[in-house]
C-alpha cells in the first residue's frame, strides 16, 4: 500500500465517495430492472437478506415506487441460514409489503431431488441450484434478477447482464449472446430463462458506499462482533452446530465480521474491528483479499468450482 493511499484512507471518514459514479451505477441498474419489467413475462427477484440483494431491493424501490414491484421476491432457503438473516429477510419483506416466495432445500431433500451424503452437516450451497431450478419451474419464472457482481470472482467477469439459461437451467459460457450497448436481448423460448444481474458493474466497495449513502439496514453479522471461531486453512470457521470442532482444532474468540452471508456450513467471517459502515468502507478500500476467496470454503476447493456450479444452474 503506497503512502499516499494510506494517507487517504487512514481516516475512515475521508474515503472519498464518488457520487457521480454511484449515480451512474444506480441509474444503470434501474434501467435494467425496468427492461426486465417491460420485456419479461414472469420475472422474480432473488432476495437472500445479504448485502447485494439489499441493494437490489433499494434499486427496485427507485425503479418502481410508489407502485408495487412488478415481481415477487424469491428466497432459496438452505435451511442452514443464520437465524438473524431470516428474521431480517422477513422484516424487510414486511416493510416493503411485497410478496415473498421461499424455495426450501429441505423440501428438495424430502422430495429426494437433492441427495447429500450427510444431510445434517454437508454444505447445502450446491444444493441451492436444484431448489432454485425447481422453484423456477414451479412458478414458471422466465427471468430471475440476482445480485451477482463481475468483480466477485474470476468466472463471473465474463457474465452477461442478461445471462441466458437453457431448459435445464444450465449456463453455457459458449452459448451466451453478445451484449451490445444497453440493448438487451431478453427473448427466451418456453422453459428457458434469464438470470439478470443489474449490479454486474458494481464492486464490493461500490456496494458498501451505496449502502452508506442510502442508509440501508443490514443483518448485524456484517459488522464486527465477538465470535468463537476455529482457524482452519487460512479461514476462520465460525463455531456452530453445523461446524463442530475436530480433535485437532483450537477454538478462539476473535473480533470478526462477515463479508458475505450464505449457508452457515460454508461461510466464514474475517477478522475485523470494523463495526460501522465508515470503518467497513475504509477496510474494503484497502483490503487485499477478495470477498469469496476470504469467506467461502467451497470456492477454495478449486479455482473452477464457481464455474462448475454456474454450469449446474447456480446463480
Amino acid at each position: 500500500m503506497s503512502a499516499v493511499v494510506e494517507q487517504l484512507f487512514s481516516n475512515p471518514s475521508k474515503v472519498p465517495i464518488n457520487q457521480r459514479h454511484l449515480n451512474w451505477l444506480e441509474s444503470e441498474a434501474i434501467h435494467i430492472m425496468r427492461e426486465v419489467a417491460a420485456e419479461c413475462a414472469n420475472p422474480a427477484l432473488l432476495f437472500s437478506g445479504g448485502k447485494d440483494s439489499v441493494v437490489l431491493l433499494r434499486i427496485a424501490e427507485k425503479a418502481f415506487r410508489p407502485g408495487r414491484f412488478p415481481f415477487p421476491l424469491v428466497h432459496i432457503d438452505t435451511g442452514h441460514n443464520f437465524d438473524e438473516v431470516i428474521t431480517f429477510r422477513d422484516q424487510r419483506v414486511a416493510e416493503l409489503g411485497e410478496r415473498l416466495i421461499v424455495g426450501s432445500v429441505e423440501d428438495s431433500i424430502r422430495r429426494s431431488s437433492v441427495r447429500l451424503r450427510n444431510p445434517e452437516t454437508d454444505s447445502r450451497n450446491a444444493a441451492q441450484a436444484v431448489t432454485l431450478l425447481e422453484t423456477i419451474a414451479r412458478y414458471k419464472f422466465d427471468a430471475c434478477i440476482g445480485g451477482a457482481r463481475r468483480d466477485e470472482e474470476k468466472s463471473r467477469a465474463k457474465e452477461r447482464i442478461f445471462s441466458f439459461r437453457d431448459e435445464f437451467g444450465a449456463w453455457d459460457p459458449k452459448a451466451q449472446r453478445p451484449e451490445l450497448w444497453d440493448l438487451y436481448n431478453t427473448r427466451v423460448h418456453p422453459g428457458e430463462n434469464m438470470r439478470v444481474f443489474p449490479i454486474s458493474n458494481w464492486t464490493e466497495l461500490d456496494v458498501w458506499q451505496y449502502i452508506a449513502r442510502e442508509q440501508l439496514a443490514l443483518p448485524s453479522l456484517y459488522f464486527a462482533h465477538t465470535r468463537q471461531v476455529i482457524p482452519r486453512n487460512g479461514l476462520l470457521v465460525p463455531l456452530t452446530y453445523l461446524t463442530p470442532p475436530q480433535a485437532s482444532d483450537s477454538i478462539e474468540t476473535r473480533r470478526v465480521r462477515f463479508r458475505t452471508v450464505g449457508d452457515i456450513s460454508c461461510t466464514c467471517p474475517v477478522e475485523s474491528n470494523a463495526d460501522t459502515l465508515d470503518a467497513i468502507i475504509a477496510e474494503t478500500a484497502t483490503t487485499q483479499i477478495t470477498e469469496r476467496g476470504a469467506t467461502r470454503m467451497d470456492d477454495q476447493t478449486s479455482e473452477a468450482s464457481m464455474e462448475k456450479r454456474k454450469k449446474e444452474g447456480y446463480f
Partner: peptide, 24 residues
Amino acid sequence: GLEAEREQGITIDVAYRYFATPRR
C-alpha cells in the same frame, strides 16, 4: 477466466475488469 480458456491458454470472450484510483 474460464476453465475452457485456461485449457487452451487463451481467452475467448469479453471479460470485464474493475479498478479505481482516488479520482476515477
